[in-house]
Design a protein around this nucleic acid. Sequence first.
DNA 1: TAATAATCCTACTATTCCGATAGGAATAGA
DNA 2: TCTATTCCTATCGGAATAGTAGGATTATTA
Lengths: 133, 133
Amino acid sequence: MFSASARTQYAIRAMTNLARRPNRTATAAELARTESIPAKYLEGIMARLKVTGLVESERGKNGGYRMATDPANISMLQIVEAIEGRIKPVGCLEHEYTCAIVDGCHPRSFWLGLKNTIDTYLSEKSLKEVSEG
Amino acid sequence: MFSASARTQYAIRAMTNLARRPNRTATAAELARTESIPAKYLEGIMARLKVTGLVESERGKNGGYRMATDPANISMLQIVEAIEGRIKPVGCLEHEYTCAIVDGCHPRSFWLGLKNTIDTYLSEKSLKEVSEG
DNA sequence: TAATAATCCTACTATTCCGATAGGAATAGA
DNA sequence: TCTATTCCTATCGGAATAGTAGGATTATTA
């Protein structure tokens, strides 16, 4: 429970690595090597980071990936959600105001509070901080 | 990511239900019915809650489960860990002081902070609060 | 003592998700 | 045209999860 997938951990390692190369590009293979990530697997991860606009890419020879933004302006929540989608501790929270599963679902606000706590932590941590940590 | 297993959700619903019956016992079948949990599945969950000392049980006719303690003295962290074991967002944190995976693992303190945030939230919420929420 | 109602125990199954790999198409530079 | 890269799609094995099945054990009660 509450464990981060390998995919998310890889994404974060790759991003912290990229963040330490201002303006320069790095190939997926290079990131994979220096961060001990399966190269082919990382390709798929970088794709997700790209569609969400966190990184930019250049194809062909001398291509690679580059930060799309100042790491100080990227929150860890953005990275996590780029990989996993919206954080949702329980299905219960999918509906706006009521729990569809059980009448008088007492734990609902407990789960809401948990989600809130996690979201807050993640959104207040910048990629810059983490990559320097 | 960070999603709670059905098992944990069931455990929490069952516990909040039990907590609202001071000193009285309820059978697994009864809890299952009122909380929409598969009855046989719940049996296994109650077993885990018992070995960790959160509930007591009585076998035979008129048997059932009962809170072992005042719900005000049970934290949600205790329930979660009874079901899932120690919360561990990343394998990285298994070793005390260094990350075994990558040299100079920058995200390590980020993950530590996250674990800490979650643990704190869960340990400060009592079953009593949640069952009344 | 027999019937009943409950916990407790063990095994099985089906499905889904995850991590990873494979092979190649498109693209850009030299 | 060769090479190095991103990009795309398909597949696979294994692990975990959710749930089911069947019965052994234990206590109450009539």
